[in-house]
Amino acid sequence: MNTNAIEIRGLVNNYPAFTLGPLDLTVPRGAIYGLIGPNGAGKTTAIDLIFGMGKNDAGTIRVAGLDHRADEVALKHRAAYVSPDLNFAVWGKVGKAIRFVRGFYPKWDDVYCAELMRAFHLSDTDKIATLSFGAKTKLSLLLALSRRPDVLILDEPTTGLDAVSKQQVFAELLKAVEDGERTVLISSHGLGDIERFADHVGMIKNGKLLLEGRTDEIVDRFRLAEFFTENGTAFPNRDGLVILRQNENRWHALLDQHSGAHDWLQTRGAKEISLTRLTLEDLFVALAKDEEAK
């Protein structure tokens, strides 16, 4: 049995002003995978391609072992998509939107749906157009979770949510994956949330994957290095070392502990090297800056 819920290999999509890929992405089964990247990095484009919204120029996408083109319908039976962009307002009321979507899924869980309605303070008679932005996202999540999908793909689901609602949403997501069978791919700018909830993370910039792996391993791997020089030695960027700023003899850099950059610094005469643990957000900003500089 395939241990990966989502496998993207060599995905390329060319636009007039942007190229996605080549992109390789692996989401293990049962994981909560955070896909992070700046605006315009290609996160939504990649997710859209999974659901057939656009045609990739090269590469393959497999979800739960199913090809996104050849097994389009089977894939969509097993995967659900959540985004504030999904417009259900044309259905008028929440109950009608539920009735419509429910009709596609034989495994639809009415009891769970009712439970989510209570948790999200939604009612069948609520008019969708009058719901707040956050409530619309909750509706989108409710419609996805109630079908009990094997793979749940969320595109910026926390946009417009207050702190309490965010906790609710993540609590439901954790509940959904607690049996270890379901997988969540979540694209978000809320890096604090991703660090707390996602056990895997992928960082994307300019259509390319910069980094991928277990969140704890990635956070452990990188450190903010502070060091001093005495003789005016210059420290250029190199593999595993990204210079962030320099103030006279004082340097700050992003250091990959697996790269041997620490030893290299010492051999170049760096003094008083101190390493500080980074948050995912710090790491993301540093890597994004480095990519921009390149």
Binding site: F51, H77, D85
Partner: peptide
């Protein structure tokens, strides 16, 4: 967008 994510 919503319609395209459904199994059709």
């Amino acid at each position: 967008r919503a319609l395209r994510t459904l199994p059709i």
